[in-house]
């Protein structure tokens, strides 16, 4: 994979989510489900069995009223790079059913290759991976709404956010037809980015200086989830609140987050 793309600079697609803007409306989740043919069931009360490639967490500062503050935190797959593409989930998959693409930085899931051992789910600290506990069934009239570019998954395999990879492929196809070798920033945007009414999500190539995410990730308010573990995620969060930034990682008592050395890429 590496060799094939040596002639062009590797991309590193990533996201910046501004938590100050997020209202927790859940539009990103809806957009994602409809774009990616995510199956659902009549009874979705057990959230630990629901498939939601992007999930909005509600976090609080754990202070009593009137000092209580709440923040909503959308959590897609972090597309961890780990150390040299050694993401927590990719390295553990016994059947090579998930792959770290060096050319895009996207962690893919090959549904027809996955045999459902769920080791990757155990490896992911973000709970970004979901198992198809049931056969995917859509109400008959809804089948017409399914996205033709995305293959539905079968029972017994793991699935997860792929940064709407089908949209990337479509953008590449279009560019190719028009005789271009590369795509513009706005030609490839994920469904959650476009679905967010508050414009809290920004998506682009973290390696490309002209992309918005490149500047945003350098903000002093930027942080990533569980950086201390060395997962090296490609989703950045922005928050002006210190307690929110602190909630991104774990600290032992008396530790000052500012003094903790974290790997930046």
């Amino acid at each position: 994979m590496k060799k094939e793309h040596n002639h062009m600079k590797n991309k590193k697609f990533g996201m910046c989510i501004d938590l100050d803007k997020c209202t927790g409306c859940g539009s990103c989740m809806v957009a994602c489900m409809s774009e990616n043919n995510v199956p659902f069931r009549e009874d979705e009360t057990d959230k630990r069995k629901s498939i939601t490639w992007i999930t909005v967490y509600k976090i609080t500062n754990n202070r009593p009223f009137p000092d209580t503050e709440v923040c909503y935190m959308p959590r897609p797959c972090m597309h961890c790079e780990g150390h040299d593409g050694h993401s927590p989930c990719v390295s553990v998959c016994p059947a090579t059913a998930t792959d770290y693409d060096m050319a895009t930085g996207i962690v893919s899931q090959i549904y027809t290759r996955c045999f459902g051992c769920r080791y990757c789910m155990g490896a992911c600290p973000y709970h970004a991976r979901y198992f198809n506990w049931w056969d995917p069934v859509w109400p008959a009239e809804m089948e017409k709404y399914l996205s033709p570019d995305v293959s539905p998954r079968m029972r017994g395999v793991v699935e997860k956010c792929n940064f709407c990879y089908s949209r990337y492929q479509r953008a590449l196809d279009k560019a190719y037809c028009e005789g271009r070798s590369d795509i513009e920033e706005d030609e490839y945007q994920t469904a959650c980015t476009q679905g967010c009414p508050a414009g809290a999500i920004t998506f682009g190539d973290l390696n490309n200086k002209s992309h918005a995410v490149y500047k945003l990730k350098k903000s002093p308010n930027a942080f990533r989830l569980l950086e201390r573990l060395g997962t090296n995620p490609k989703v950045y969060y922005l928050s002006s609140k210190e307690w929110v930034r602190k909630a991104g990682d774990n600290y032992i008592k008396g530790e000052n987050p500012k003094n903790i050395k974290k790997s930046h890429h």
Binding site: A95, T96, R113, F115, Y119, M154, G156, V157
Partner: peptide
């Protein structure tokens, strides 16, 4: 335990030696 028992042989055939 595996979600797709009929594909169990993938672990041998498509082995990821790092797992």
């Amino acid at each position: 335990d595996v979600g797709q028992p009929l594909r169990s042989w993938f672990i041998f055939w498509h082995a990821n030696v790092h797992s």
